[in-house]
Design a binder for these strands. Structure first.
Ligand SMILES: [Mn+2]
Ligand SMILES: [Mn+2]
Ligand SMILES: [Mn+2]
Ligand SMILES: [Mn+2]
Lengths: 216, 216
DNA sequence: TTATTTTTTTAGACTTGTCTAAAAATACAA
DNA sequence: TTGTATTTTTAGACAAGTCTAAAAAAATAA
């Protein structure tokens, strides 16, 4: 149906669309580590296939059809990540690159059976929601630890930075998905945040607090 | 390391090498449903990478390095087929095309963990041996039903035709891997073969007998 | 052994996806 | 509002992999 390159572009455009309206050529180029001229070419191709809306110099947005394809790729990516962690016992910082390849395996029957085999999980190992086969998923409002008030209690539920180094850091601090925490104090000098988790206090930097998401 | 196209060529050359010495350009073209001129180009590229031995007009053979790559692809193919049948409950005639894509997922760590997850299976759903991570596997001498003598007893252990239609036929006749059979009679008129399995008699055509393999 | 057929290779072209360099459009600042 | 900086597009090229048509080599037949 769509080539591997097309799928990667659609996924990138979807991701960028979450924090912007129309997505710019340069944003896509940065996301995919490619050049703006390559993006222009590909975007024209996707527009011809009616997967994106595009007018010269105005950026792009996904059409309904394009969004459906993107959500399907994300579904596959997150289900494979879940499989790798839950069944093959990889750590959450090890699975992204493998899933990046596996998400392009095309059979929908395969992905639906994989979904059933694992009991229809709703979130991947990083806390991100797994769309169902129609592209629907529950949106839960998550907040960066850095944005909530003192004495707020919450459950660690996601990350904004998916890099291996950040995930490894969280793992070492035991700040993993599902843990209950209370925000106790913000140091005014450097905005470091002191949390309480399982009756012990942990201090995290402002950067970490920005990238760690909790459900209230 | 190697591109998808290169991997497919290496696998094809390996497969053809089993029944011939040097493999010809036309044989490879037929196996991959491509043109002889394309094969010449690719074979030159593989020769430069020292994965095949090639001299103009003389056909090709795999080098030690090329054989190792080929066996690794076959390992991945067969392990994924096993996964699809044993864990996702696909039928043995449904898995080949999916495995054809999955065999190109590159992580060796992934494949080794998949292998462990399934308990280190030694044969895929079609009875073919699964090489270990060093490319070693047990060679079992299998014989087509059409070549053994009357009153020979054996266990169905493999097929020479992997097409969905043949596998579906066998499934319908319950002639599946592991079944014990005895060759009772060959009809001289059309070489049809009469088998006994679980105390009932089954008649199969010469074509089927040619493509059904048993261990004695 | 010579002629014919078959196989293989070469030559040249096309597609997909990428790149660099230059031109055009847009955004921003004075 | 005019000039400069930035972004985006165009033009032209390249690598991988494929194809068709023609040439060369090898195999086969007379
Ligand atoms: Mn990921
Ligand atoms: Mn994830
Ligand atoms: Mn197969
Ligand atoms: Mn098989």
């Amino acid at each position: 149906m769509n080539t591997l390159a097309e799928e990667n572009y659609l996924k990138a455009i979807y991701k960028l669309s979450l924090t912007a309206g129309n997505v710019s050529t340069n944003q896509i180029a940065a996301e995919l580590a490619t050049k703006a001229s390559s993006v222009t070419d590909m975007v024209r191709k996707l527009a011809e296939k009616a997967l994106v809306n595009y007018t010269r110099y105005q950026g792009v947005s996904l059409t309904k059809a394009g969004e459906k394809v993107a959500l399907n790729i994300i579904r596959r990516h997150r289900l494979w990540e879940y499989f790798l962690v839950e069944k093959l016992h990889f750590k959450w910082d090890e699975v992204h690159d493998m899933a990046e390849e596996m998400e392009h395996i095309s059979s929908t029957e395969l992905i639906d059976r994989l979904d059933a085999f694992m009991g229809h999980p709703t979130r991947d190992p990083h806390g991100d929601p797994i769309p169902d086969c129609d592209g629907n998923f529950k949106v839960t409002e998550l907040k960066p630890v850095s944005t909530v008030e003192i004495n707020t209690a919450g459950v660690i539920s996601g990350v904004r930075d998916h890099s291996a180094s950040f995930l490894q850091y969280l793992e070492r601090q035991q700040l993993t998905i599902g843990k209950h925490i209370i925000i106790k104090e913000v140091i005014s000098y450097d905005n470091a945040v002191i949390l309480e988790m399982e009756n012990t206090q942990i201090q995290i930097s402002r950067d970490v607090a920005n990238n760690l998401l909790i459900a209230l």
